[in-house]
Design a protein around this nucleic acid. Sequence first.
DNA 1: GGATTTTATTTCAAGTATAAATTATATAAA
DNA 2: TTTATATAATTTATACTTGAAATAAAATCC
Lengths: 146, 146
Amino acid sequence: MSGGLSKQRLRLWVNLLRTTRLIEADLREEMRTAYRTTLPRFDVLSALERHAAGLLMGELSRHLMVSNGNVTGIVERLVADGLVERLAVEGDRRAILVRLTQAGAAAFAAMAAQHENWIDRRLEAVGRDEAQTVIDSLSRIREDRP
Amino acid sequence: MSGGLSKQRLRLWVNLLRTTRLIEADLREEMRTAYRTTLPRFDVLSALERHAAGLLMGELSRHLMVSNGNVTGIVERLVADGLVERLAVEGDRRAILVRLTQAGAAAFAAMAAQHENWIDRRLEAVGRDEAQTVIDSLSRIREDRP
DNA sequence: GGATTTTATTTCAAGTATAAATTATATAAA
DNA sequence: TTTATATAATTTATACTTGAAATAAAATCC
């Protein structure tokens, strides 16, 4: 045993989990009261906003790191609300392209600005360099695993 | 605007979320295949293991940072499996004390050792000092907000 | 003591999540 | 071509999750 290093890593994991959950809870509450929406819906809109040409259901699922079937349901509700549209894909009749509608893009723009503010306040305790340090560590963790 | 600091904090949040989700997905898969169980169940057992005298439902819910009603369901299933027991609380007939059974303690002990190994491998990329640095940053984020 | 409020938990409806099975289509191989 | 295999998405069954409402018991007020 390497001097309790594995215990230290376990502590890191617990800290990661608790911090993420805490911030997620705050964001969920803000989203709910300010926009009557949920985090998963926001996440979908956010991914689509970064891909103006649209995304396939599978791509969306991989971007968000949630299961395929899950995305089906969330997109369904967003379509029902007119924020998202589904389009047939030229040359592959299995695939479906999902894209923001104008209403969806507008709704997202308003939310995204507030979202950035909430995060800014929530992470007030970290400055630029410290943030970069943590980002680097997290990136290395994610990349370490082929 | 402070030179894009809020954008940097947003990047930090995205990194936090992606890393946590990635590790959670790995752990869920390990838990499922190795022990036919789920992360939420493991989390409940873990909290109870750290409190041998048991926890009230409300305490459990606060520890795990999940809603009250949620804990009810998970504990229910753990009770059905004989890993957890519910006890009346002397002097307060509203409260319910939840505690590991012997079987639950044994099951958890086996899982916990493996869990630490999985985390150790998953966080191989970070050493002791780096881990401490990240833990400090995360702790400060959590504490910054009364 | 009795009314009011607070606290502890459960129930409920709706949404989110997974894994496994299914459907439909596309691609490759024989 | 026919057959086999792979891919894209949905459906299904089950579990997790929340917020709000309901229940019940305690604590506080007057």
